[in-house]
Amino acid sequence: MTKKKQSIFTSQKFIVLLVVIGLMIVFSLISKDFRKYTTLLSMLDYSYYDVLMAIGVAFPLITGGVDLSIGTGMVCYALAGGYLIRFHSWPVGAAILVSILFGCAIGLLNGVLIAIMDLPPFLATLCTCMITRGLGSICSGSFGIPWPIANADNGWFHSIFKITLASGTKIPLGFLWMVLLALLMAFVLGHTKFGRYVIAIGSNKEATILSGINVKFYHVMAYVVCGLFAGLASISYANAIPTVQPGTGAGMELDAIGGAIVGGVSATGGYGTIIGTLLGTYVICLLKTGLPYIGLQANWQQIITGLVLIGAVLIDILKKERIKK
């Protein structure tokens, strides 16, 4: 028996990092416009909500489940917060808090349905996906709701994600938060009881139950964390999108789930890293932003993203088979 130690250079994280760098180089070489700093700024603005959703959904994925409600959920929470600011003159800070708590509540609902009432995750979150879409429309009275713009009195929250220096240079501060949040959640996954049990549930739920662990609680918590991040994502969504439209959001969860899986989160549970999720999501974001610059329009993006996902899932299957041998 030989000691198997995975080298950092063959780890999926490293490969995905290379892909991110490679994509940036390729797009930059082909398109002059892609090389512009404003393109990078815009891409980052639109990446934050994908990243936040992906970090969140990594937890249900690692337990062997999924959360399909994060896309419509995110839009719903943003609508709820926006409604309070616009029509009830709530301070932005309080509205942000409501959006985040709303996310946690839907996460809790998902968790209860799945971990306690034993609904299949796919089905349970498909239902909450529809519910949040409906709730969003009700919150907003079926009208699009804009959050305050950056130079409005209460538009301070935009500076969480992007600040303008005295020289006029814009700094994508949000990216720093993404990296810090990813590091924090990586630590939670790798170094806390919650993280350890989330992995154990995805790896072998029965054995975890028989080890005397309150599996239901930790299983629910995985979905609450996912809801929390969908709530956070709603803030970055309101930052990026001028007017949040009810009825949208469906399909956005797929970019996040895809990002997590490209980043090495096992589609069948039991394995995954948050740093990988961060990188994987940027592969998806780069494809979304970059492909139009090299003349491939929306339809092609979807096809290519789909193919990249198939590749990632195949790698996951091969990896599992190798472990079995």
Partner: peptide, 26 residues
């Protein structure tokens, strides 16, 4: 019995992780 794709360490302390925490961390 075991979580096969995890390490001996993770399996050994699975039932009593509480005793191996420093604050909130393992």
């Amino acid at each position: 019995g075991i979580v096969v794709q995890k390490s001996i360490i993770e399996n050994s302390t699975l039932a009593c992780l509480d005793d191996y925490l420093s604050g909130p961390f393992i």
